[in-house]
Design a protein around this nucleic acid. Structure first.
Length: 891
RNA sequence: GGGCGAUUAACUCAGCGGGAGAGUGCCUCCCUUACAAGGAGGAAGUCGGGGGUUCAAAUCCCUCAUCGCCCACCA
């Protein structure tokens, strides 16, 4: 066998591994009755999208869970696909047309929709291939799109059922209107931003002056809407205006005579206490208008220009109209004052244009009946959020839910399956397209609007398993196991999936919801392609490997709200992959021709120690990644960062830095000790690779194949090898304690060597003062001290005194001396010893005070007290030792 | 207006009732036949301020400050 390269090169390795995985048929697994499935649905990325850091993080999380579950033997299904993304896609295609000098109205609806499909064919697979590149083990054989024919059927069925049950209705309401996208938006598609605006105070003259009162003053942040004012409202108890209730004012610039009405909604303390009411352009004003029977005058067109109702201002853009109106009012002496005023302004979440509250006919879903069971399933614990604090956010939204405006004035999307008859006025929702009116047989036309994209994505967990058909997959894989997603779509998507799942699939869509941190850039800004503040995951994979990126992300995934991502953070993950590669290379190269696979042989304390540490690691990883195991252990589930850290520390610090180094001597010796060391190296490495695989699939798979360890279980791929279990019996606290002592001794001797700049080849003698069992413990480790600390002769003596010309050290409760003829800087040694002595005395005093405290002795846990006593005893010995050393050095 | 989160070593962040940790960076030494993308050693923090609970607080409670996010019919 040729020697594998010393450096792991992801660029060379990942491609072929990926090919073999895709060809292997392991990604999506079939129904296997009798075994619990593990199902995840991917949050479907927009077809227009390409991989960003949020996807990289979220899909790493999902893949870690899916890969682990697959190894435990659960049939796994990770449903993948893309979202048609109504507005986003329509905007892209419109931009493309614009670049060609055309627009959608010119080519017509049919051709436009075809252009969208064309876009999808060209761009839709980009993000899917990027997921593959990351190593995501989705079921790519079963890729979904939210506009697939069967998916369209599911969407239509949900609409028709809701319609027939009276849960969908059409109505004229104030909705959020994006004048650039020219469509309605739901409330949660609006992004509010605090902006510095103005508060204008405007004089409205009374039609019939009463005494010396000939006007009142209203305050507004949007003066242009005055064109549509149909009354002025004051609070009924406001003494300033009581006499004016019922009076008539003449609307400036327009001349319309409008009443002054009394309404409880008015806050007398804001502005002037008198509100101009524009029922067609403000939700509150709409309500007031309804209560007082006021006219609704729409003064803005779909693209936010003034309508004919605006008289002289007709055709002006809303902001131009504002300027002109303010100027005209000022000229007429009706502008009382202008003040700065900070208020929050809604923007379109797709194009960031300021939205207009606008009166129009739209379709709404009655949400309260759907919300009730969705609240219930979280209350009774069937659905759990992680971190748990999101549960409260979810309740708050659900309990204050408002009806959902689901119609969009777009062409790309699921067209609303409602047919209107112009002859008899019939309105019918239908699963099949209607050619004639079911009531009168007259001609019908279909509603031209499409449904909110989120209406269809809400069905994702069951529509992708075949619903409304009763498929075996739906029966087996639904409800899904875990959903992992970003917090910004908790309401837009997650909450609605829960409502629709309960309503239509008859069960919750998933039991566990992971709300992962948001990825920000190093400056703490949201990563955004358009702003150029993002990091491209593809570049990261190029430089650090898919494993480096994945592991780096996992290390940073803690319970915190966000991740400030800086590229440098990935370097040590890439190095870690290389470390794993080299450790494996070492273990494999140390094996002999005659190696026979078999169970581990815990021959020495070092063997027992590493096996114990491995058992601990296995437990930690399971508790961090498996919700059931976490609950058994009373721990918070889904601790990706903690699992990654445990893997990293175990592999690098414990396995590489200590165990391999401890084993080297025996490997060179050969014989039964060497054979045992090989068995243990193979066993521990094998299990560690399995535990690492979900987070670092490529390097571990490459090792599995290229450096095949001779173990019993040799699956074709590490991906389907067995997940380690049943290691708990290897726990060995005594071995862990012994190796702890050894580590302290070695570290202390190394520190002495470093202090005096001894060459790595130079041997030193070591004198340790210890008695009884302690002495035996140290003596038993003579050869390790030899190998790891360059100790030549070791002498353990209960009455040892400092040899002349020796450096001194303390390791735990051991006092040790290293004779260094002619080398020792006594002044420096003394200074160090005195410093250590000071610290030890302080620590000891603090502990003694604590141990003398009656409250502490009465109330603290027995094991805590025991631990402190042991610690105090050790410190007391250290103080004695250091005092003696200090004294001996002062001669 | 309501709510949530953050504030720990120069930087980025873990830890969240009983010994202040990691990575990066920095200093010293070492190319020791797994790995220089490495090894060994080291310096570095009154855990944002102030109260409180407790035998014991970075960790729980209150409060203040700063930063970030979410929700809300803030004319």
């Amino acid at each position: 066998m040729s020697l594998p390269p010393a450096a792991y090169d992801p660029r060379e390795v990942e491609g072929p591994i990926l090919e073999s995985w895709l060809a292997g048929g392991w990604y999506g697994q079939p129904v296997l009755e009798g075994r619990p499935p593990f199902t995840v649905v991917i949050p479907p990325p927009n077809v227009t999208g390409s991989l960003h850091m949020g996807h990289a993080l979220n899909n790493t999380i999902q893949d870690v869970l899916v890969r682990r579950a697959r190894m435990t033997g659960r049939p796994t299904r990770w449903v993948v696909g893309t979202d048609h993304a109504g507005i986003a896609t329509q905007n892209k295609v419109e931009q493309k047309l614009a670049a060609e000098g055309r627009d959608r109205h010119e080519i017509g609806r049919e051709a436009f929709v075809e252009a969208c499909w064309e876009w999808r064919r060209e761009h839709g697979s980009i993000i899917i291939s990027q997921l593959k590149q990351m190593g995501c083990s989705c079921d790519f054989e079963d890729e979904w799109f939210t506009m697939d024919p069967s998916y369209q059927k599911a969407v239509r069925k949900v609409f028709v059922d809701l319609f027939e049950q009276g849960l969908i209705y059409r109505g004229e309401r104030i909705i959020n209107w994006c004048p650039r996208c020219t469509t309605a938006l739901s409330d949660i598609e609006i992004e509010h931003e605090e902006l510095e605006g103005r508060l204008w105070r405007i004089r409205y003259p009374l039609a019939d002056p009463a005494g010396d009162v000939d006007h009142l003053v209203v305050a507004t942040t949007r003066p242009e809407t005055m064109l549509g004012d149909t009354c002025v409202a004051v609070h009924p108890d406001d003494a300033r205006y009581r006499a004016l209730i019922g009076a008539t004012v003449v609307l400036p610039l327009v001349g319309r005579r409008i009443p002054v009405v009394a309404d409880e909604h008015v806050d007398p303390s804001f502005g002037t206490g008198a509100v101009k009411v524009t029922p067609a352009h403000d939700p509150n004003d709409f309500e007031i208008g309804e209560r007082h029977g006021c006219e609704k005058v729409n003064v803005l067109t779909a693209d936010a220009r003034v309508t004919a109702e605006g008289g002289a201002y007709e055709g002006l853009d809303r902001y131009e109209a504002r300027k002109r109106i303010v100027a005209d009012l000022e000229e007429q002496g009706l502008l009382v004052s202008v003040d700065d005023h900070v208020h929050s302004v809604g923007h379109c979440y797709r194009c960031h244009t300021v939205v207009e509250p606008w009166l129009s006919d739209q379709w709404f879903v009655d949400m309260k009946p759907l919300a009730a069971p969705a609240i219930e399933c979280a209350r009774d614990g069937r659905v759990r959020f992680h971190p748990a604090r999101w549960t409260g956010v979810y309740y708050h939204w659900m309990e204050n839910i408002r009806d959902w405006c689901v119609s969009r004035q777009l062409w790309w999307g699921h067209q609303i399956p409602v047919f209107y008859c112009d002859s008899c006025g019939e309105m019918a929702a239908s699963m099949e397209d209607l050619a004639a009116c079911p009531a009168c047989g007259g001609p019908v036309r279909q509603d031209p609007d499409v449904l909110d994209t989120w209406f269809s994505s809400a069905l994702w967990p069951f529509a992708t398993l075949g619903w409304p058909e009763k498929t075996p997959e739906l029966d087996y894989f639904y409800p899904t196991t875990v959903l992992s997603t970003a917090r910004d779509i908790l309401f837009l998507w997650v909450a609605r999936m829960i409502m629709q799942g309960l309503k239509f699939a008859g069960d919750i869509p998933y039991a566990e919801v992971i709300i992962h941190p948001t990825v920000f850039n190093a400056a703490g800004k949201r990563m955004s392609k358009s702003l150029g503040t993002g990091v491209d995951p593809l570049d990261l994979m190029e430089h650090y490997g898919a494993d480096g990126m994945r592991f780096g992300l996992m290390l940073q995934t803690t319970g915190s709200q966000d991740i400030r991502f800086a590229e440098e953070k990935l370097a040590h993950s890439r190095n870690f992959a290389n470390k794993v590669w080299n450790a494996s290379r070492f273990v494999l190269m140390s094996l002999r021709e005659d190696y026979e696979p078999g169970p581990p042989e815990p021959l020495t304390v070092a063997d027992r120690w590493i096996l114990s540490r491995l058992a601990d690691l296995s437990q930690t990883v399971d508790v961090c990644l498996d919700a059931d195991r976490a609950r058994e252990a009373g721990a918070e589930p889904f601790q990706f960062g903690e699992a990654a850290r445990a893997l990293y520390d175990f592999f690098w610090s414990e396995f590489c830095d200590w165990y391999i180094e401890l084993a080297k001597g025996r490997l060179a010796e050969g014989g039964p000790p060497g054979a045992a060391a090989r068995r243990n190296l193979v066993f521990v490495l094998d299990r560690a690779l399995r535990l690492l695989h979900p987070m670092m699939p490529f390097v571990t798979e490459e090792i599995w194949r290229r450096l095949p360890l001779p173990t019993e279980d040799r699956a074709d791929s590490l991906m389907i090898a067995e997940w380690p279990r049943g290691l708990a019996h290897m726990r060995d606290p005594a071995a862990e304690a012994s190796v702890g002592v050894l580590q302290e001794l070695v570290t202390e001797v190394r520190a002495i060597r470093a202090r005096y700049g001894l060459s790595p080849k130079a041997r030193v003698d070591l004198v340790v003062r210890a008695a009884g069992a302690d002495a035996a413990l140290v003596e038993a480790q003579a050869h390790y001290l030899h190998e790891l600390a360059g100790v030549g002769s070791l002498s353990v003596d209960p009455a040892a005194v400092r040899p002349a010309c020796s450096a001194v050290g303390v390791a735990g409760s051991f006092e040790l001396y290293v004779p260094l003829e002619g080398l020792v800087d006594f002044a420096a040694e003394r200074e160090r010893v005195v410093r250590d002595l000071g610290r030890a005395r302080e620590d000891l005093e603090r502990l003694e005070r604590k141990l003398a405290n009656e409250g502490y002795l009465a109330k603290a846990a027995a094991e805590v007290i025991e631990k402190d006593r042991a610690k105090a005893a050790e410190l007391a010995r250290a103080v004695v030792t250091l005092e003696a050393q200090a004294a001996s050095l002062s001669d």
